[in-house]
Design a protein around this nucleic acid. Structure first.
Lengths: 214, 214, 214, 214
DNA sequence: TATGAATGAGTATTCATTCAT
DNA sequence: TATGAATGAATACTCATTCAT
């Protein structure tokens, strides 16, 4: 390949990625506007200024678009969590930061939560997004949560305890987010943020208290 | 209205309720068989031995059927929780029983969980099931969870603390159920039942430990 | 059922059959105009003055419409052949009449020939019109051809010889029709009608000539 | 044009023809694999290692590819028939060989028969493959069948009788092939090969019997 | 109370073809 | 010569809902 060709191809690839990105942006907007069920291939295409058929040059199927959206959502999540962790020093603070970052990411971005639930819903029904894709997304989620486990181990937890802490934290956060995003937490006069903080602090305290079972 | 007319009306209403019940049974079966997405009005009608149009004499819309299903699901939940509570004596045991019953109800009945999530999902998007219906369903959920609050107060918690306990328990259970029903809890080698028990026991222990903030 | 109800139902059924008939007529027109490939469900519906969705109340699928068309085409064929046979007296004349009627039916109605080929084409590919339907249609075709076999037996042929005569006649007629309807017979300066007549007459002559193998 | 230019052009043309051939090979494979309806331009292109658009540099349209395929199919047929004729000596045997070769070519190659029917089907509908192409293909078919006529004349038939024999033979063979390839000949417990042989032998016998009308 | 017929909007996906690069 | 992107029209079929009967 000559230099010119290389540059040409590079440019073409860049354009390509740009277009893919624009389509994904459109999908995000439609998704934001009409919810997951309203986000048909057709509406995504129109929002992006394309014919439905045109999307098939950039994505294999509607599900592929969803998967890509989820992937980038989970990537953002991971970045967000890692950034928060990086700003803290001591393990306890880092663990706390990771858990809170996870929670806050979804608290301020309901659509990402919807997407995440979509991933999970897929698992409820047999089809989902296809097994390989599913595993990839699971791995991304696990990666975003991994700092929690890592810092728990740094605080002296066993690998197993650390894993359980991840599960518990995820569960508690997910449940609170559900309540928060549907306005039902107000029914009880509670604040999701306050509750998740309290939950995490208790868990950390117990981790740090020596000579006690977790 | 004459006596005869009244009796006529009473009979008609009874028949009416019976038919509604049969339709709801059919809906439950379809829903169990095909999941939420596969449960079209058409398939519910056919399962019930009706034409789609006939259902509109008994329910205003497809959503109304869903709402009714949810209502009866929440009623079952309340019964289930109350029965569990009734089998225990001391407040701590009763609280424990209530929380575990809530969890177990949904653990063994994924379709009811789907319905519950559907209710909540409705809240995420603007439409939902209509505000009055929403409030009714919220009240039913709150009622099913009320024993938790009641027993917490019996253990000395303030009204506010009791409410927060309800929220926390609900959130933790919901999160774990999500993980359990999608098989993702296996990813972490954890058991949802064990985790919810541990969570509840800790909360109760803290409630009972005097002189400590919850 | 009361008399009134019976009459009501009878009327409803009549209307129903009428509408089915109108749709089939529309299908025939579209088919005539655009050929088999152009006869989409959509175009049939529009031609009939319906929305595509409406056709599904009268037919299960597009293929069901095709099958019905074929069925009625084969029924017409059978009637046509039987009528021709009935007008002749002696077996030889009846056989001749049957074979020529078969040929002429398709000679003057190219679209019915197309439909018939569609039935056959179905057999080439795995799918076809569904096996039960396929067998029903095969039976209709066989029935339309049955007078040929019957009269051959009346002329002294064995069952087996009679069957082979049917096959030969069908094949020769089908081949000539193909040539005729595509105008290719003119290439050879031949007349399909004359050729089929000659073919049949020879076969009959041989059947009648005693002491000779068929 | 200079010599160099001429050689350049010659080379370019050779490459061009080679590529056309490769595309046609791919088309044959796709066609064999997926049948006429499954053979989209897209799948042909992919099978050939091209993008769909690229095929338009080598063929005017999808129909043009089909036509080319047909052309080469008919050329194969002609070769096959001529080879068979060449192996026989006496006119009667040569005629017989030609007719049987025609039949056998299509008996063992259903896809070629499909293509042939496609050609003819085109004639049923107004469009077809375009008149000039149609005539070319007709001529190829006529050429493949010409030995039949030639040998018939060698046996003493007039030009006209010979032509009619070609038509009859073609028709009978085509009809039997239709029955054979759709499995319907089994319905009648008959064998296409046996029937075509018997038919040909009778015709030859009649040709040889002197003093009798054909 | 129930039906059967009908609508209109919608679904994802495929197709042959065109055109700027 | 070949590509990648795009089009526009088409495909069969499903959906919740309405309405005359």
């Amino acid at each position: 390949m000559t230099g010119i060709e290389r540059r040409k191809q590079g440019r073409a690839e860049a354009v390509n990625n740009l277009k893919r990105g624009l389509i994904l942006d459109a999908a995000r907007r439609v998704f934001e506007r009409d919810g997951l069920d309203g986000a048909s291939l057709r509406s995504i295409a129109l929002e992006a200024g394309y014919t439905p058929a045109a999307l098939y040059f950039h994505f294999d199927s509607k599900e592929a678009i969803y998967a890509e959206l989820l992937k980038s959502s989970l990537a953002s999540l991971a970045t967000w969590v890692n950034d928060a962790v990086a700003r803290a020093r001591r393990p306890a603070a880092r663990l706390r930061a990771a858990a809170l970052a996870f929670f806050e990411f979804y608290l301020q971005s309901p659509r990402d939560l919807d997407l995440g639930f979509y991933l999970f819903r897929g698992g409820m029904r047999p089809k989902g997004l296809g097994q390989p894709r599913d595993q990839e997304l699971n791995a991304l989620l696990a990666a975003a949560l991994s700092p929690i486990a890592a810092e728990a181990e740094a605080l002296g937890a066993t690998r197993k305890e650390a894993n359980l802490l991840v599960v518990d934290t995820f569960a508690h956060a997910a449940g609170l987010l559900l309540l928060a995003h549907t306005g039902r937490i107000r029914m009880f006069g509670a604040s999701a943020s306050a509750l998740i903080e309290r939950y995490i602090d208790e868990r950390i305290e117990r981790l740090e208290r020596p000579g006690e079972a977790p």
